[in-house]
């Protein structure tokens, strides 16, 4: 009897051992990809790790794989943030849109949705969406309005009425933004036709009008000198040289008329360029008056 009990005990232990060993043996037989590291849970863990490391491109790939198995709002939101951070704004806005209803990210998703349009430079669409009050945010409505108004300074669209434009900004910054508004509304442009006419009347004057004083004086001297040489050569009966300098005069004269118009265009483009740069620096330094990001 004793022997039989001991035997029974031993068999039980072996059975227990086998039960515990089974998963291990089973593990060896399972394919590598389905095991441990590539399971959805571990993909999520790895995705979060990469997200924290700001390796958004790789993180987005992991989140995407996870979302194939499970739909999770947090993961979807982080996935959208990854797309946003790597500049895939269109894809990001589509994904933020899926979080608009019935989850804790509704408000933030809506803000990022508009930000995606703003940073994706689709200003017109941003304004249309904001004006139509689509996907209105309760918490961030003012931030979205600010983005919308800043977008007017970024492209060639018609500015809204000044008071409504400024009202969404704090009093402390309104005077500076009002300056931007005036600069945008009444840029100090030079007229290319006027510049060309000036140079047609007095060579070089069109260039001086556009601020290129040195070029204007040079154009005047070269045109006048070649015209004088043409005149003096004709007078001295050196007809060939006379015609040569006449051609040169025409060359300098017409080139200067054309160049004055081009100079006015460059002047205007520089004003636009400097304005855009100033706007980007000013608002960029203030993060476009957006709420501080938690991510």
């Amino acid at each position: 009897m004793k022997l039989s009990a001991a035997h029974k005990n031993g068999s039980l232990q072996i059975a227990v051992l086998l039960i515990f060993l089974m998963p291990i043996l089973n593990f060896a037989q399972t394919s590598y990809n389905n095991s441990g590291l590539f399971s959805p849970v571990n993909r999520l863990k790895f995705g979060n790790y990469l997200f924290a490391d700001k390796d958004y491109l790789r993180a987005s790939a992991e989140f995407k794989e996870y979302l194939k198995s499970f739909d999770d709002d947090t993961v979807r939101f982080n996935y959208s943030l990854c797309l946003f951070n790597i500049g895939k704004y269109e894809e990001a806005s589509d994904n933020f849109k899926t979080l608009f209803y019935g989850n804790p990210f509704t408000e933030k998703a809506r803000l990022y949705f508009y930000e995606s349009y703003f940073f994706g430079k689709d200003y017109k669409e941003l304004r249309d969406l904001a004006d139509n009050q689509n996907y209105k945010s309760v918490l961030y409505s003012k931030g979205i309005e600010r983005l919308k108004n800043i977008s007017y300074l970024m492209d060639d669209s018609r500015l809204p009425e000044m008071n409504s434009f400024l009202s969404v900004f704090d009093d402390s910054v309104q005077s500076r933004i009002a300056k931007f508004y005036y600069q945008k509304k009444n840029p100090k442009h030079k007229n290319p036709v006027t510049a060309a006419i000036f140079s047609a009347i007095i060579p070089g004057s069109g260039k001086i009008y556009t601020g290129e004083i040195g070029d204007g004086i040079t154009a005047f001297i070269t045109t006048a000198l070649s015209a004088y040489l043409a005149y003096s050569n004709f007078k001295a009966d050196h007809n060939f040289r006379g015609w040569l300098f006449t051609g040169l005069t025409a060359f300098f004269y017409s080139g200067n008329v054309y160049g004055s118009a081009a100079s006015a265009q460059i002047y205007n483009a520089r004003i636009r360029f400097n304005f855009d740069k100033e706007v980007k620096i000013y608002f960029g330094e203030r993060n476009y008056f957006l709420p501080k990001s938690d991510y």
Binding site: G214, D215, I217, T218, A219, T222, F251, F252, S254, G255, N256, Y258, G259, A262
Partner: peptide
Amino acid sequence: PLMFADRFTRDLNFI
């Protein structure tokens, strides 16, 4: 050539 004439004049500008 008009563009070149303008460029040539600008090149002659010492300052």
